[in-house]
């Protein structure tokens, strides 16, 4: 059973603001820095012939950026084909029939592209070129595609995200808690948010 929960709203008093529905990519909007925006990133990608790479360490917001860009692709008339390469996967689970459906309007998005085998990566690039489809990948180190954005995490970003997720009257998680967690899970925002879940659960006032 796997569903998207785009429409679940918080309703329960024991709700944890760091639950998956609130922190998964797509629920959190990517924070653009240095004057960039969703539109500027999409324009840059378009100028690169819809080819590009998002480089950044684990848990630095690459998936969140892709989720933030997704509606923009549709607005620009592109059909997104999104693939996520999980740990241990060497080949993209995709059949030739599906590959043939890629058109110049298709935006192929592959998360964790560097995990694929060299031959499989080459094959995807070749098919995209042949069918003039766009290819946007995420990776930890540059793979030589046109650079679109470098994601990173800073303490300020962590603090601002946690502040935004916490209910307005919450006083039991402080910036110092975020600072300590940031030190422990350096550059990994996802781990920081997981720790905030536990901290919230431990400190939240109990009913009655």
């Amino acid at each position: 059973m796997s569903h998207r929960f785009d429409d679940l709203a918080p309703m329960f008093p024991d709700q944890n603001p760091f639950s998956t529905w609130a922190v998964r990519p797509g629920a959190i909007v990517f924070r653009f820095v240095n004057g960039s925006s969703r539109e500027s990133v999409l324009t840059k990608l378009e100028e690169n012939g819809w080819w590009g790479e998002v480089v950044g360490p684990h848990g630095s917001g690459k998936s969140t950026l892709l989720a933030t860009l997704a509606p923009g692709f549709e607005e620009r008339g592109r059909t997104v084909k999104r693939y996520v390469v999980k740990l241990g996967e060497k080949q993209l689970a995709i059949n030739t029939l599906e590959l043939r459906k890629w058109t110049p309007n298709t935006q192929v998005v592959v998360e964790g592209f560097e995990k694929l085998g060299r031959r499989n990566r080459k094959m995807i690039e070749t098919v995209c070129k042949r069918q003039q489809a766009g290819l946007l990948v995420t990776c930890h180190e540059s793979l030589g595609f046109p650079a679109l954005l470098q994601t990173s995490i800073s303490l300020e970003l962590g603090i601002s995200l946690v502040r935004d997720l916490l209910p307005p009257d919450c006083d039991f998680i402080s910036d110092d808690d975020v600072r300590r967690s940031y030190e422990r899970h350096r550059h990994n925002l996802r781990e920081l948010l997981f720790e905030m879940y536990d901290l919230y659960e431990k400190r939240r006032p109990r009913d009655g």
Partner: peptide, 8 residues
């Protein structure tokens, strides 16, 4: 089990 993005 959390399986968002490339993370499981």
């Amino acid at each position: 089990t959390y399986s968002q993005g490339t993370d499981i």
